[in-house]
């Protein structure tokens, strides 16, 4: 396992662990998702650098564009949740049990 592979894998795993286990605020969940996306960005850009292929050098930017859209949608949902529930704590998202 190369150091770069280890670095982005552990960054991604850390983000995923935070998303799964640290369930306090919606904002922190969104930040974890964004961290996962950034580690994938690093992975893609170092992969295309290492391969040296011109055709795959645009892929990291596509990834960044889509993940920016996703982060925007996440923030919109954060605003909507704050307006309907009055807070962004994930504990308060408990209306759908019945």
């Amino acid at each position: 396992m190369t150091p770069i592979l280890f670095a982005f894998s552990s960054a991604f795993t850390l983000g995923l662990t935070g998303l799964v286990f640290h369930r306090v605020h919606l904002l922190s969940a969104l930040l974890c998702l964004e961290g996962m996306m950034l580690s994938l960005y690093i992975a893609l850009s170092t992969w295309s650098l290492g391969m040296g292929s011109a055709s795959s050098s645009a892929l990291p930017l596509f990834l960044l564009a889509i993940s920016a859209c996703e982060a925007g949608a996440g923030l919109a949902i954060l605003v909507a949740t704050a307006r309907t529930h009055g807070t962004d704590r994930l504990q308060s998202l408990n209306l759908l049990q019945w």
Binding site: L16, A29, A73, R83
Partner: peptide, 21 residues
């Protein structure tokens, strides 16, 4: 725009975004 729909959208977003990632 009522609480149940927004909550469902939040849960759907978190699950689908993490699955896709």
């Amino acid at each position: 725009h009522h609480p149940r729909a927004v909550e469902a959208a939040t849960k759907y977003f978190l699950i689908q975004a993490s699955g896709a990632a």
